[in-house]
Design a binder for these strands. Structure first.
Lengths: 340, 340
DNA sequence: ATTAGCACTCTCACGGTGAGAGTGCTAATA
DNA sequence: TATTAGCACTCTCACCGTGAGAGTGCTAAT
């Protein structure tokens, strides 16, 4: 990208700001009137031409104002918008709501999605981290009925798994507790890979339980963490989706799929901070008129969770980035405080 | 409603069928050509006039074909469509998928929503029953870190609750197990109301745990069971939602709310079987151009779960009712088999 | 380098028009 | 009396042309 003069960059910033606010192509005169630049509309026009030549602005048609291109937004995000932060009182309000909630990862994610969606008026996705290193803290076998028992496994981070087990022979709760105790001795504190190397051995009814345990852990290691989506209503009201139903329906259709890979590109999580994916940069066709702001949390692990915001390319990137960053850091902090 | 002659009713049925298929107002000539009635278009027209006078059909405008009114659909559902059933192979396919899935209520609900949405091309909601009578089967206290412990409670129906507890003093897992054991003696097999009457009493660190337990149960009794929604993409492609974005956005906005009362009217669950709520019959304004087909399952309890289908009033009621009925009975059966 | 002025282009809202579709009515018919 | 053919009538919708308005691009002056 060729270098862009100060004034030119300033005009790009104003065009982005104005377009984000009004959703209408921005005329040179509008900027001149609204921001009192020390330059006439004609000058602004010629700067706009230069910006268009550089690929940062576009023309819907000859006699319409300018609209930022994907590259324009990219430049804006990279160099123009500066580091925005939530106000202290906003932060306090959010934090307060988390303290009110039950100290559960799932609750936090739910709440985070709601707050994010509400404050931005966009679609928010908060995905739970998949536990990378499954480590057993405790397990318990509970008799349900006849041969049926429930295997309850507590992992680090207060995650609880459960699995129905069919026993070989009927046993009362006392007997099951014995099996639990022996199994606990063998596996408590172990990780999945350790258990793989040295599977638990139990005689009698315990065999079925031990097998079920390994199976349960393997399944869990593969499973997605789940996600909370919020703000569909507001998202739908964005003016860009008033036409082009076909395309829009396809976009929403992505949300029916069990995984959100196609909505929030995993590649964007590569580096630690907040990432922005703009328009055509999205791998999914259906997303090419949207942008995604995504921030990982619980970022130490490979399978981190993330906080995502999906909106039209015409979105308030500054606020979205600030919100996503704050929420992800807050989730990190909460997780550290509670689960260490 | 005045009595409707056989032929007249037959014509209403054909109009409904045709309109449901084509989404376009139905002309007398169309019916005449397509279904080879022993009557000319003129006769069909006069019957249509009568149906319109009875409030069962409408006119978008003078020179358009007929469209069923809400009352027309109601009459169709009540008296005309007859008892439709899924084909045996369809049932078998569905059943098979449930047998493949993990025997968890939540998995079943998820799967049910997916299958329902896919087979009907509409929005499907499967809500979990809220457990009416909370009865404790087993509980366990697991040490997490410092003063923090996790209280895990197993209820009937293999439901597992968990709650973080902050202890008064640090204790190792053995000590916690002792507390669990004593608490188990006092509350295992008891219902919430029994526990309310005679709260568990424990000295020392146990007090906090006992309090947390009661709190957890109370919270859970109030909480919605949660729900799975599926098929938004297909739903959006329905031609009735191509215009009127405003209204449609409001409709989708209902899905952002934590409870689905306004989407699936609870009153419709009153009687045991499958209920149909058509257009204006919906209590929620936003739903007045939609119909809902809803079937309760786990119907013994007051807080039963339900299987719901949401579509435009122009929907295939027969299939929707058949699908909802089959799915709800299947869920009933599965729950009975596994949780008794 | 900036700017005023102006011609040019494109959109959009408006109104008129004609084709097409489907009805409602009337009069003839079985 | 029920049915039906025929026909006038109505309403929509797609099409077109038009004119106003908005905003640009260019040119010439500063």
């Amino acid at each position: 990208m060729q270098s862009v003069s100060n004034r030119r960059a300033g005009i790009l910033r104003l065009v982005v700001r104005e377009y984000v606010d009004t959703a209408a192509p921005v005329a040179s005169k509008t900027i001149w009137e609204k921001y009192e630049l020390p330059a006439s509309p004609a000058t602004i026009r010629s700067e706009m031409q230069a910006l268009e030549a550089a690929g940062l602005l576009t023309h819907p048609h000859t006699s319409a104002g300018r609209v930022p291109s994907d590259e324009g937004y990219r430049y804006f995000v990279e160099s123009l918008m500066g580091p925005e932060e939530l106000r202290d009182d906003e932060k306090a309000t959010i934090r307060h709501q988390f303290y009110q909630a039950a100290p559960e990862l799932d609750e936090w994610a739910q709440l985070g999605a709601v707050l994010l969606a509400r404050s931005l008026g966009l679609l928010a996705v908060v995905a739970l981290p998949r536990s990378e290193e499954v480590r057993i803290r405790h397990l318990e076998l509970v008799s349900l009925k006849d041969l049926l028992a429930l295997l309850v496994v507590v992992l680090r981070e207060a995650r609880v798994l459960k699995q129905l087990v069919t026993l070989d022979a009927v046993g009362d709760q006392a007997e099951l507790s014995q099996i639990s105790a022996r199994l606990n001795d063998q596996v408590a504190g172990k990780t999945l890979s350790e258990i793989r190397q040295r599977p638990p051995t139990l005689e009698g009814s315990g065999t079925a339980v031990a097998e079920a345990l390994v199976q349960l852990l393997e399944d869990h290691a593969l499973r997605e963490g789940g996600a909370h989506v919020q703000g569909l209503g507001d998202f739908l009201e964005q003016p860009e989706f008033q036409d082009d139903h076909e395309e829009f329906a396809n976009l929403i259709g992505l949300l029916d799929q069990p995984s959100f890979d196609r909505v929030v590109p995993l590649g964007a999580l590569a580096d630690g901070g907040v990432s922005v994916v703009i328009g055509e940069e999205n791998p999914a066709q259906e997303m090419r008129r949207c942008s995604v702001v995504v921030a990982p949390y619980s970022a130490g692990s490979r399978h981190s969770g993330f906080v995502g915001v999906v909106g039209p390319t015409r979105m308030r990137y500054g606020r979205a980035v600030a919100s996503a960053r704050y929420l992800s850091s807050l989730l990190d902090e909460l997780m550290y405080d509670v689960y260490g």
